[in-house]
């Protein structure tokens, strides 16, 4: 086997994995605060991509304006989604809430391309398309930058969870009644989590939009993100980074090495195999929060 090819696949895989991880981090953020697995995260990323495209192309803004505009708009979209849809479900069985988020995912997948047109939209964030040669390695510039930005965003999120506001949000995820009893505005904390999660989805949507264009298929990121979130442990941000790298690597190597043998199509199998295997072998994921039991 060609070592150079493997090195190339690995490096690109790691950075693609980090870009997946950013979507997964949004799922973790909401799970960490409200205990709900948000299945609309892929659609939020797609929506973020469309929002960025709308501000950039329809409104014709320069990048230093359309990017913040898209992030702010999506923050409120996320918070509004929680306010209008999710908050009504308080006290309902958890499965109903998860089904609701899945419904939102499917609905957005239909509505947004229907509204903006289903052709692929180009989103330019100023990354040159020429590949980068490091020694003899042939690397994708957009992926490298995308992976680095994703990692930085996730690190910011980790820092955030250690701030006082972050502690309050973790308290909400631990015990909502107790949070209420010490004066935490639980509803507001959860709405904030949804807003921040939508912001992270938007960053991911923009990065992916810049590499593959904006269309409905951005929402398919949900599957990879779910695989990563489940492997990482659903409530661990560092877990998401590690799991993201694992999934990215596995996918990239599978495409590069197994595809020529079986004739293609392994890329999308990898994520689903990881979901199934994790759930069977280690349901809490690699870094999932342990259930505390005093002896």
């Amino acid at each position: 086997m060609d070592m150079l090819l493997i090195a190339e696949l690995s490096i690109n895989g790691v950075f693609v994995g980090l870009m997946y991880a950013l979507v997964a981090a949004g799922i973790v953020l909401i799970y960490k605060t409200s205990g709900i697995a948000n299945l609309a995260q892929g659609a939020l990323a797609m929506m973020g991509g469309y929002a960025a495209w709308a501000f950039a192309t329809l409104a014709g803004l320069p990048i230093w304006l359309w990017l913040p505009a898209a992030l702010v708009a999506m923050f409120f979209a996320g918070a509004l989604l929680e306010r209008l849809a999710l908050r009504r479900m308080v006290g309902q069985p958890i499965i109903m809430v998860i089904m609701l988020t899945l419904g939102i995912e499917i609905m957005l997948r239909g509505i947004l391309p229907g509204f903006f047109g289903s052709s692929v939209k180009r989103l330019d964030i100023g990354i040159p398309t020429t590949p980068l040669f490091v020694g003899e390695l042939f690397l994708n510039r957009a992926t490298l930058i995308g992976g680095a930005v994703s990692l930085a965003t996730i690190l910011l999120a980790i820092l955030f969870f250690n701030s006082r506001l972050g502690i309050i949000m973790r308290a909400v995820s631990d015990d909502q009644t107790a949070s209420w009893s010490v004066g935490i505005k639980v509803e507001r904390a959860i709405a904030l989590a949804w807003g921040l999660s939508a912001v992270m989805a938007t960053i991911a949507g923009v990065l992916w939009g810049a590499t593959q264009g904006v269309d409905w298929s951005l929402s398919l990121l949900l599957i990879k993100a779910l695989a990563i979130a489940i492997l990482g442990g659903l409530d661990s941000l560092p877990g998401v980074v590690i799991a993201g790298i694992i999934v990215g690597l596995a996918e990239s190597l599978a495409t590069g090495i197994v595809d020529p043998i079986v004739g293609g199509g392994t890329r999308d199998v990898v994520a689903s195999v990881i979901i199934v295997l994790t759930l069977i072998l280690r349901p809490h994921g690699l870094f999932g929060r342990e259930h505390i039991e005093r002896v």
Partner: peptide
């Protein structure tokens, strides 16, 4: 007015100091 719930109900996954900080949102 503040209510200390029956059965203690501390935030189990937070350290004692984080538990205290969580109650300072006001």
């Amino acid at each position: 007015l503040v209510h200390v719930l029956e059965g203690r109900r501390v935030f189990e996954h937070l350290t004692p100091e984080e538990n205290l900080l969580a109650a300072t949102s006001m």
